[in-house]
Design a protein around this nucleic acid. Structure first.
Length: 880
RNA sequence: GGAAGUUUAGCUCAGCUGGGAGAGCAUCUGCCCUACAAGCAGAGGGUCAUAGGUUCGAGCCCUAUAACUUCCACCA
């Protein structure tokens, strides 16, 4: 029912209220309807450690736009929300919170710690959902999921077992990245390399036969405790004679062999490499080829191990390095120290320098899984928007290495592997049900202590959330999902893993389109980060400007995959636009008759109504196609431009005289005003859901829109009945003429309050005559004459459009020179046009090869330019 | 070392498959015209990074160059 709009736009007054209404009325719920087509988006689950930041706000906005658009288009639209347990990130937070109480996780034990972790989830898991509600997210909260809830956990276990049975998961000793602070393995992509200044220590390893020493160069001298060989290139003439000999390993009493391996680069360093299989990936491979022993020389906290470390045992790795270098120097084995800049791997979570370590871990064999995941994108069945991101996806997938999925932490899905404690037997059993007795030997079975990489569960998100592995109704109906919206920063972590997991476990791609967005940066283009303190809090922006303004800001002028800079003036602009729309609506409502119940377009409409309807019809087509091709920024630009420039600045102003006049003509205008307003609100609704709903509910709504909420109204359809190309073109001539007069008035500093006379000479006399009220109202014309042939006495200012010559009599003598100069400028401009266009049309190549429509178009432009030129020339002649 | 992106008005950025360069902000001018000064009407401002090429026609396609950004790999 119609209700009053508040005097000023203050989103605080209605945003929360409207959201609750929507939620109460269950508009967000996707009820399966076999008559409708499904449209599904699964939300990238935010971490339970987090709170809403600009990245989420952007992510949220884009998804909400798509889902609201599709819902209005008549799809059964499901947006499925949820949260991620974020294994290591969360555990680290809990551990550090406990530290303040003076507790470690070992004080609590595994069960006690898990209790805390679940309590943490209860406390913080819900927070971000409240924040998302404030953004206006229309997701189906009844289907809310968590990566560690029962269903998702079951999917994880099932996948683990399936992969194991297919031989795609194995346990083995490999070099992994070990974080000595988090005390867990991390995967390759969780390791971030940063360039650091370091040194090259040149150390002499004495030959055991006393025939001299071999100089090696290393950046990590402490690892020599784990050396089990030194290597040279087999073709290296310098060292051929020492291959097979032994060297004395400094600071120890061990002797190790000199081996030959092609891995060694003769050009680099001294051409001799120390081989530490336990602490370097390449050395590990060399060690395997040469069957070298693996000596672990560090504990899990990166202190030197008892037993191998001698006097250095117990020291931290850097402390040991210092001590060892000092000792080497003392023994005369240190040849030299060179500064050296190199890349050092650090832990993505805590920044600690990782220690590559040979360790017994679980891995997913990736080669086989990667292939179909590459093919599905290559074939175009699954696409990235923008497409360029497919490139890095391919590069990563094609060079993929096995994925280390076991983590030495407690918060996560525990690996369903059980090991027989009987050393003779050593049987491994993978099972969903706990098992304590070995099926082979009857010995005691103990479950693997480790949990799974957090991405192992998020990789299953598109189907685990829909009930898989059960063939639920949801899964059957909504899967595969339609679009995935996420930032380019997690394509490898997440998107790629969902793709191969979906294909492997469900036999189908998990989604069709991946819409990639960029990062929201600060005003100086820096990443928003906690350490810099340059983050902008979306909630603060919502408090001050409203969620609609925030959303509009995030989507305006942004193209897929591109970063954007955050500035507050952008939000002010968005808020100003909202205010504009608000006031336009208020104006319309103020002038509507009480009894009006809906907008009905009369059969017989004046030209300006047809003009605006025709433009509006074009807008529907453009915006719909923009949205369908993920051009969200362009779509919203088009909508806003129309609302501001066409609807407010022109059409409302055009109808004011009619409204004031009252009667039939006013009634028609009111109907058109409301009709288009409804349509604009619908088009804008996905972008600015709150304000459009608030206005919608205050409007007299009829027809298909006679519903209680814009959210569930139908998306506007372009139609031939709204298409008036002739009127659109004709009225364009009036708009041109008024524009020309306004510009001239402004140039001459004629105040808007002062009426001027106008004589219009045109062949469109009827058209111009009928437009008199517009000239009066919008161009400040007092006396208005339209004629097919004007008496040109040379005492008027003459404006020329391609449809008319417009004379503004000055009353007194005009400055002939100045007027001539102005006309001369116009003539030059017209001449430039003509020469450009006729040049084009005289070009045989253009005529032969350009499409016919293009040629026709250029011909029309030329004809108009020539008409205009004729008029200008006449005026110049008269003036002279 | 490999790859991708960016370079367009003073600033922030659009510009879909090639058809005479756009928006917002900022600047300047004039306006409180009963929806809106969070506004209205105008104006100025660009060799589309550089050099070649393809084409009837290039901001857009190709090649090279420069600067900046990012991702991947990682030689001890």
């Amino acid at each position: 029912m119609k209700k009053e709009l508040a005097k000023t736009y203050s989103p605080k007054e209605f945003e929360d209220r409207i959201y609750h209404e929507w939620e109460e009325k269950k508009y967000f719920r996707a009820e399966i309807d076999q008559k409708k087509k499904p449209y599904t988006i699964v939300m990238p689950p935010p971490n339970i450690t987090g709170q809403l930041h600009m990245g989420h706000a952007l992510d949220c906005t884009l998804q909400d736009i798509l889902i609201r658009f599709k819902r209005m288009q008549g799809y059964c639209a499901l947006w499925l929300p949820g949260t991620d347990h974020a294994a290591l990130a969360t555990e680290a937070k809990i551990v550090s919170a406990m530290k303040e109480e003076g507790l470690t996780k070992y004080d609590l034990g595994r069960d006690g710690f898990m209790e805390r972790a679940w309590a943490w989830n209860d406390k913080y898991g819900g927070r971000i959902k409240e924040q998302q509600r404030r953004m206006g997210t229309s997701c189906d909260w009844s289907r809310d999921r968590f990566t560690m809830d029962e269903g998702c956990s079951r999917a994880v276990q099932k996948v683990f077992i399936d992969l194991y049975e297919k031989g795609l998961i194995y346990r083995g000793e490999r070099i992994i990245n070990w974080c000595p602070n988090c005390k867990t393995s991390i995967s390759d992509i969780e390791t971030e390399y940063e360039e650091q200044d370091g040194f090259f220590w040149h150390i002499n390893y004495p030959l055991s036969d006393g025939s001299g020493a071999v100089e090696i160069a290393t950046t990590r001298p402490e690892t020599l405790l784990g050396d089990t060989a030194i290597a040279v290139h087999p073709d290296d003439e310098r060292y051929k004679n020492i291959i097979g000999k032994n060297v004395k390993l400094p600071l120890t009493d061990r002797e190790i062999p000199v081996i030959a391996d092609e891995y060694v680069d003769m050009e680099f360093g001294t051409g001799v490499v120390k081989i530490t299989p336990a602490h370097d990936p390449n050395d590990f491979e060399v060690g395997r080829r040469h069957d070298l022993p693996i000596i672990h020389m560090m504990n899990d906290d990166a202190t030197i191990k008892e037993g191998v470390g001698g006097k250095y045992a117990g020291m931290d790795r850097y402390e040991a390095r210092k001590a060892m270098v000092a000792d080497l120097e003392e023994q005369g084995l240190l040849v030299k120290v060179e500064p050296h800049r190199h890349n050092v791997g650090t832990c993505q979570r805590c920044g600690t320098t990782v220690e590559p370590t040979a360790s017994l871990q679980w891995f997913v064999r990736m080669k086989e899984l990667a292939k179909p995941a590459i093919d599905v994108v290559k074939s175009g069945e699954l696409r990235f928007i923008p497409q360029r991101f497919e490139n890095s996806y391919f590069v990563w997938m094609e060079n993929i290495r096995d994925w280390c999925i076991s983590r030495q932490i407690w918060w996560g899905h525990r690996i369903p592997a059980y090991y027989c404690q009987n050393k003779e037997c050593g049987h491994t059993e993978i099972t969903l049900d706990g098992i304590d007795k070995c099926p082979k030997c009857g010995g005691k079975m103990v479950q693997d202590e480790d949990t799974l990489d957090t991405w192992f569960s998020s990789a299953l998100w598109p189907f685990s959330t829909l009930g898989w592995p059960d063939k639920t109704e949801d899964f059957e109906y909504f899967y595969p999902t339609s679009a995935l919206v996420t930032g380019y920063d997690i394509i490898t972590f997440w998107v790629s893993r969902m793709i191969f997991s979906g294909l492997e476990h469900t036999g189908k791609k998990p989604f069709s389109d991946v819409l990639i967005h960029g990062l929201v940066r600060d005003e100086q283009g820096r990443k928003m980060s906690k350490s810099l303190g340059n983050g902008v809090d979306p909630l603060d922006i919502i408090d001050r400007f409203g969620a609609d303004a925030l959303r509009l800001t995030l989507v305006t002028g942004n193209a897929p995959g591109n970063d954007m800079r955050w500035t507050e003036t952008k939000v002010t602009n968005s808020r100003n636009f909202a205010n504009k729309l608000w006031n336009a609506s208020r104006y319309i409502l103020m002038n509507l008759p009480e009894e009006m119940t809906g907008a009905v377009l009369p059969d017989d409409l004046p030209i300006e109504d047809k003009w605006v309807l025709s433009l509006y019809n074009g807008l529907i087509k453009t915006v719909t196609s923009n949205l369908e091709s993920y051009e969200l920024g362009i779509a919203v630009q088009n909508i806003c431009d129309f609302i501001r420039d066409i609807y407010c600045d022109w059409y409302i102003e055009l109808t004011k005289p009619r409204i004031a006049q009252g009667g039939e003509t006013a009634r028609a205008a009111q109907n058109v005003l409301v009709y288009i307003m409804q349509g604009m609100l619908k088009l804008l609704h996905p972008f600015m859901p709150f304000i459009t709903e608030e206005i919608w509910q205050s409007m007299p709504i009829s027809g298909d829109g006679n519903r209680e909420s814009i959210m569930i109204s139908d998306w506007p359809q372009a139609s031939d009945e709204l298409d008036f190309p002739a009127e659109q073109d004709s009225f364009g001539k009036i708009v041109d003429a008024i524009g020309a007069i306004r510009a001239q008035r402004s140039e001459l500093n004629v105040p808007p309050s002062r009426k001027i006379s106008l004589v219009a000479e045109t062949s469109y006399t009827e058209l111009f005559k009928s437009a008199e009220p517009f000239f009066e109202k919008l161009a400040g014309i007092g006396e208005f004459t339209v004629t097919a042939k004007a008496e040109d006495n040379g005492d008027s200012i003459t404006l020329v459009t391609d449809a008319a010559r417009l004379f503004i009599p000055t009353g007194e003598l005009i400055d002939k020179q100045r007027e001539l100069a102005r006309l001369e400028k116009e003539r030059a401009a017209a001449e430039k046009d003509i020469s450009f266009l006729s040049g084009k049309l005289n070009n045989p190549g253009f005529l032969a090869k350009a499409p016919a429509a293009q040629i026709e178009n250029e011909r029309n432009k030329l004809a108009k330019a020539q008409e205009k030129m004729e008029k200008i020339l006449i005026s110049i002649e008269k003036l002279k």
